[in-house]
Every structure is written in C-alpha cells, then in structure tokens.
C-alpha cells in the first residue's frame, strides 16, 4: 500500500491548483476596491527577475517589493497612469507587459501587418509571372522521343 502514498500526495498537490505568489498578510490592502485595482495594475507589470511573469504572479523578492510599492502608491492617492509612469521611468518599456506605442516599439506593433503585407506581395509577384515554358528538346532528345513513339 506504500506505493499509493506518493500518488495521493501528487493528487492533492494537483487539486490544490496553481499556487499564486505568496502574500504576506501585510501585503494586501484592507479596502477590497483598492486591492482589486492594485492586482489589475500588478498584472500589467513585468517581474524583471523572472521576466515571463507579472509581479502579481511572481515569488521573486523584487516582485514583492514592487507589489508593496504599487499598494503604497495607491494608498497615497496616485492614479494608475501615475504608478505606471513611475515604474516606466525606472525600468523602461520592458517593465510594462503591454509596451507603449513609441517610435522604438512601432516595429513591434506593426509586425503582424508587415508580415501580412510581405506574404501578399510574394503571392501577387508569383501570380503576375507565368511559369516559364519548358526548354525545347535537343536534337538527341527529339530523336529518342520519336524512337519511343514509333515503338520497337
């Protein structure tokens, strides 16, 4: 029966669902509306340490510091835009999971359109140009063809 124990533990772990970032009690705001704002904002901020996660999802130390910072700013009465600007000034475009449209990120945002345009251009260029006619047969090939047609 011992071999069932690990399986049971795994099942329990799976049932527990994906663990979010560990919050200390002091990390959440008492006001549910303000806390909801903080979480929505935090999901748009990239954790610079783990890079693929937002600060709301990350266990990294810096992510926790930034979560606290976002909540402090909300309590101090800052707008979402002001908090985003605060982080953007320090960490640059990369900290925003939705990068802002600027001369530098224009290429990034336009890339789907550019790819589509490129594909269309290739298709149109192919259509306009009829496939080249096969090269005429050489005299030897012609003779061989006639021999085959005439039969043995």
């Amino acid at each position: 029966m011992h071999h069932r124990l690990p399986a049971l533990a795994l099942l329990l772990a799976l049932l527990a669902g994906p663990a979010g970032a560990a919050f200390l009690p002091g990390d959440r705001l008492a006001d549910p509306a303000a806390e909801a704002r903080a979480q929505a904002l935090g999901r748009e901020i990239r954790c610079m340490v783990c890079q693929g996660q937002s600060i709301e999802d990350s266990e990294a130390d810096l992510a926790r510091d930034l979560r606290r910072l976002v909540r402090e700013r909300i309590e101090a009465g800052d707008s979402d835009a002001a908090i985003r600007r605060f982080l953007h000034e320090r960490y640059g475009d990369f900290v925003l999971l939705r990068p802002p449209l600027s001369a530098f990120t224009l290429l990034l945002w336009a890339s789907p359109l550019l790819a589509l345009a490129l594909g269309l251009a290739v298709i149109l260029a192919r259509r306009r140009q009829p496939p080249p006619a096969p090269a005429p047969l050489s005299p030897e090939e012609q003779a061989r063809l006639e021999r085959i047609i005439r039969g043995p």
């Binding site: 340490v49 810096l62 510091d65 320090r90």
Partner: peptide
Amino acid sequence: GRVAIDWGVY
C-alpha cells in the same frame, strides 16, 4: 532596497 528600485536595479 528602495533606492535600488529608483535606479531600476533588478
């Protein structure tokens, strides 16, 4: 670690 955040240290 607050000054580090002001510098953009990660």
